[in-house]
Amino acid sequence: MNVLVTGATGFVGGRLVAALLAETDHEVTVLVRDADGYEPPGELTVVEGDVLEPGSFEPALEDVDVAFYLIHAMDASGDFAGRDRRAARNFERAATGAGLERVIYLSGLGSDVDELSAHLASRREVESVLADGAAEVTVLRAAIIVGDGSASFRLLTQLATRLPVMVTPRWIHTECQPIAIDDVVAYCLAVLERPETAGETYEIGGPDVLTYRELLIRTAEIVVGRRPLIVPVPVLSPRVSAYWVGLVTDVSPTVAYPLIDGLRNPVVVDDDRLKRLVGLEPTPFDVAVRRAAGLEVDGDAAETTVSGGRIAE
């Protein structure tokens, strides 16, 4: 099978490419905007192009069977939802023209009955745009991905470890089901190898459902050995929260605001079909945090893993 990874220089994409090369026999192609600045982790095909520029990226789809679509424009200024929409439409049309069999897209958790934040609503729109094409789409919906390089986890970690006292809005009581990056990659590889997952939407998460208050406290205890004092207030808006976050963390404001806005939406797995199909034993939150922070985790060397996630015997 020839597999294309878009967003190969990103947090998830980079780890997925390495896992594809290490754990499968598939031919791997990556689409990057700057081929000269990309250092392949092994033998693969590198194609330079930009999905926002039709005509520049189509060669990457030649002879490809399945593509991972891992492109998000939230780190750019301006209308990220509009850019994500155009990019997905351009890719969908090119994939249809190339006769692609399947697209695997990493989206965001959140109930459709809720008023989704702009960030999560954009992820849903991309799902729909990709599904308009001839290729079947497999969607994986995840909440915060815990790992070194995750913007959302970096934001929360820096808040948890840099402030002894935090004044927070009501989102501090919202429930979240974070997932380790190793488990995300394991799920990506699992659906790639299972044709029956084509056309399906799956929710993926770790074993722990936490409020953001619990997430901040446990992260601080693991990383710096102390509990921050968290004082929730009802009047702190997401925009004001984002400005406050900008003073404390190094996360770009263009990323921080949509992430903070999204914290009002509960992001919890309601459908664990994929976990049961794959037989993945998800990584506990505390273990994922220790790995992300570069701290030693007891038993790591003895685990039987697929991309770090334990597969049930």
Rank of each mutant, 00 (worst) to 15 (best):
M1V: 09
M1N: 08
N2V: 00
A8N: 03
F11G: 13
L16V: 04
A19D: 07
L20W: 13
L20M: 04
L20S: 07
V28F: 00
V28A: 07
V30F: 10
V32I: 07
A35D: 01
G37Q: 02
E43S: 14
G49Q: 02
D50A: 01
V51M: 10
L52C: 01
G55R: 00
D63P: 03
D63G: 02
V66N: 09
F68A: 04
F68I: 01
H72Y: 04
M74V: 15
A76N: 02
S77E: 13
D79E: 08
A87W: 06
A88C: 06
E92H: 06
E101C: 00
R102A: 05
R102T: 01
V103F: 10
V103L: 11
G108L: 11
L109P: 10
G110T: 06
D114K: 04
E115L: 08
E115V: 09
A121W: 12
S122H: 11
S122V: 02
S122G: 12
E125P: 12
E125V: 12
V126I: 10
E127I: 12
S128K: 14
V129Y: 04
L130K: 11
A135Y: 02
A135H: 05
E136W: 03
V137H: 01
I145D: 00
T157E: 14
T157W: 07
L159P: 14
A160L: 02
W171V: 01
D183S: 09
C188Y: 00
L189Y: 11
E196T: 12
E200W: 08
E203P: 13
E203R: 03
G205A: 15
G205D: 12
I217E: 14
I217R: 15
T219V: 07
R227Q: 15
L236T: 03
A242P: 06
V255S: 15
L259E: 10
I260C: 11
I260R: 04
G262Q: 06
R264Q: 12
N265H: 05
D270L: 08
R273F: 12
K275N: 07
K275Y: 14
R276Y: 10
V278N: 06
G279F: 12
P282S: 06
V289R: 12
G294M: 03
L295M: 11
V297A: 03
D298T: 11
D300T: 07
G308M: 02
G308C: 03
A312Q: 13
